[in-house]
Design a protein around this nucleic acid. Sequence first.
DNA 1: CATGAATGAGGATTCATTCAT
DNA 2: GATGAATGAATCCTCATTCAT
Lengths: 190, 190, 190, 190
Amino acid sequence: MARAKVENKYKAILDAAISVFAAHGFWDTPTSLISKTAGVADGTLFNYFKTKDDLINEVYLEIKKELGERTLDGLAAKDSIREKMRHVWNTYVDWGVENPDKFTVMHQIGSSYTLDEKVKAAAETGYLEIQRIASESIAKGEIRDYPTDYLGAMIDMQAVMTVQFIRQNRAQATKYRDIGFEILWNGVTR
Amino acid sequence: MARAKVENKYKAILDAAISVFAAHGFWDTPTSLISKTAGVADGTLFNYFKTKDDLINEVYLEIKKELGERTLDGLAAKDSIREKMRHVWNTYVDWGVENPDKFTVMHQIGSSYTLDEKVKAAAETGYLEIQRIASESIAKGEIRDYPTDYLGAMIDMQAVMTVQFIRQNRAQATKYRDIGFEILWNGVTR
Amino acid sequence: MARAKVENKYKAILDAAISVFAAHGFWDTPTSLISKTAGVADGTLFNYFKTKDDLINEVYLEIKKELGERTLDGLAAKDSIREKMRHVWNTYVDWGVENPDKFTVMHQIGSSYTLDEKVKAAAETGYLEIQRIASESIAKGEIRDYPTDYLGAMIDMQAVMTVQFIRQNRAQATKYRDIGFEILWNGVTR
Amino acid sequence: MARAKVENKYKAILDAAISVFAAHGFWDTPTSLISKTAGVADGTLFNYFKTKDDLINEVYLEIKKELGERTLDGLAAKDSIREKMRHVWNTYVDWGVENPDKFTVMHQIGSSYTLDEKVKAAAETGYLEIQRIASESIAKGEIRDYPTDYLGAMIDMQAVMTVQFIRQNRAQATKYRDIGFEILWNGVTR
DNA sequence: CATGAATGAGGATTCATTCAT
DNA sequence: GATGAATGAATCCTCATTCAT
C-alpha cells in the first residue's frame, strides 16, 4: 500500500510534467507548478527525481517507451513489409493524435534539449526491431537501399508533421494519414 | 557616439544571439551572454530589441528571410518542375550545411517557441512563390494532389533531417542530399 | 525548517520595511535592504509578500489598523463629545510621537502612493466609529454641520503637523498638543 | 533669439516634469519621459539640470515661487487681518484648484522628498511677509498667540485638504472654501 | 548648445534545490 | 518518505548619466 502510494506519486509527477510541459514548454515550467499539478509538495518532486533535468530525461524516456511498445504490439502478426510499415505508421500517427501532450512534449524535448546519452540510447531500444525489419527488407530488395537510421528518422519526421496537420483538422484525419503513408511508401520503394 | 555604428551593432547582437542560441538553446541563454558575445554592454541589447522575446522573434525572422531569398534566387530560371524542386531542395540543404547555427536556431525556435503572429506571417511571405509553383504543378498533374502546405512542411522536415545526417557525416553530403531528393520526388510524383 | 518562525518573519519583514522606508522613502528602498534589515534572504521577502507593491500596501494597512485600534481603545468610556474628541486627538498625537517611523511611513505612503482600493477601504474601517460619533454630534448640534469626512481629514492633517512640530521640539510636546486641540475645537464648535 | 530658445527649453522641461510627476510620481518618472514630453533629447535635460535631483528641487522651488507671488499679489491692499487672511486663503485654494498638477507635485515633493536645504530656505522667502503679518496680529491680540510657523503649516495643510475635496466635487468649491476658512478663523481667533 | 546611442550599476523577482521537522 | 519554508544565485530589464559628433 505504501509502495502503491509511492508509485502513484511518481506517476502523478510524470503525468503532471507532461501536461504542463505541453502547455508552457519544459524550459519555462517551474518545478513548483509540476508539483502543484501533481498534488504533491515542492520538495517531494525531488525525492523522485534528483534534478529537473533528470525529470525531463525521464519524461522523454517514458513517452518513448510507451510509444515503442504500442508500435511493436501486433507488428509481428503482419506479413508483408508493406503491411508492417503501414502498421507502424498507423499506430504512430494514431497515438500522436490521441496523446497530443505526450506527442508535443516528446518532440519538444527531442528537438530542443540535450538528453543524457544513456537516455538517448535507452530510447532507441524500443525501435531496434523496426530497424531490423527495414534491413531485412532492403536485403530482399523490397525497399531501396537507404541507411536504416535515415529511414527511421524520416518516418518520425513525417509522422510529426502529419499529426500536426491532423490536429488542426480532425475531420481529415484519415485522409492525411493515408497521404502520409503513400508518400512514404512511394518514396522508399521503387 | 550618436550616429555611430548603429547598423553594425544591431547585426552584431543578432549574430551573437544566433551563435549562443545554437550552443545553449535560446531558453537558457542569458541576454548578458549575448551582449558580451556581441561586444556591447548589457543595456545596449535592449536599445535594439525591446525584450528578449523580441530578439528571439527577430532572430527567427532574419534567418527565414535570408533562407527565403537564397532559395528564390535562380529559381525562375529553372524550366521543369523537377528542376525547380531540385533547386529548392539543393539550396535549402546546402544552406543548412553551410550555416549550421542558423539552421539549428531556426528549427529550435520554430518548434519550441510561440512566435508572434505577425512574425509568423512575415516569415511565410518568402515562401509564397514556392507554394504557387507547387499549386501550378498540381494543376498540371505533374505532382500529386496533396495540400501545398503539407508538401511545404514535408520538404522542410525532410531537409532538417537530411542536414542533420550530413553534418554527422560530411563526406556523404552529396549522397544524402540525393537520397533525400529522390525520396521526396518519388513520394510526390506518380 | 518547515513550520518555523513564520509569524516572526512576516513581522520582521514588516518592521524592517517600516524602519527603512522611514529612513529612505519607500520608493528608493531596495527590497534587498529590507530583507537584510529583517535578517532574511532576499527571496524570503517574496514568500510573504508577492511584490514590493504588496508589501507597501500591507505596511500601510498594518499601521492604520494599529492606530485605529489604539484610538478606539477607551473611547466609549468618554462621555461628552469634547472628551471623546480630546481622547482621539491625544491618542493620535501621542502615538505619532512615540512611533515616528510608523507615523512618517503612514503619511508618506498615504500621500505619495496609489494604494489598492481594497486596502484603502480596509484602512477606513477602523475609523467608522469616529465618523459615527461625529455625525451624531452634528445632529445634536454640538459641532458644526461640516461633512464628516472633511472633519476626519482635518484632524488627520492637523495631527500630522502637530506631531512634526513636537518632534522638533520634544520639550513643548504638551503645549503643541494642546494648541492643536484648541484650534480644532474652536474651529469646529461655535 | 538663441537665448529665447534656451529659456523655452528650460521652461518646457520644467513644465513637462510637473505634468508627468503629477501623473506618475516623481520617483518613478524616468528622465527620458520628461525629455520626450518636453520635446527635447534625453541628453538636453542634463544641460539644464545637472541631475534629476536638481530638477526635482527646481520644480519645487519654481512652483513655490509662483504660488508665493500669487498670494502676495493684492495682499497689501487688504485692511483687516481677517481680510488679509481671507485673501491668502482664497488665493491659495483657488490656485490649487486651477493648477492641479502643480499643486499635487508641490505636496508630493514636499512630503516625500528630502529637499536641498538651500532650496527649502529659498522656498520660504515668499512667505515671510505672511509670517510678519501674523506676528503683527498676534502682537495686537487679534489672533491667538501660537507660533507663526505652526500657524503657517496649519494653513498649508488645511488648504491641501480643502483643495483635494474640491477637486472631487467641483460643484461645492465655494462651500468647501468657505468652510475651510471658517474653521481656520474660528480656530485662531477667540 | 543639442543630440541620442551607449553604458552598466542596480533592482525586483524567480526558481531549483535543500533540509529541519 | 513527505513537507514546504528558506535560500540566494541568476536573470531580465530600467534608467540616470555621459560624451562623441
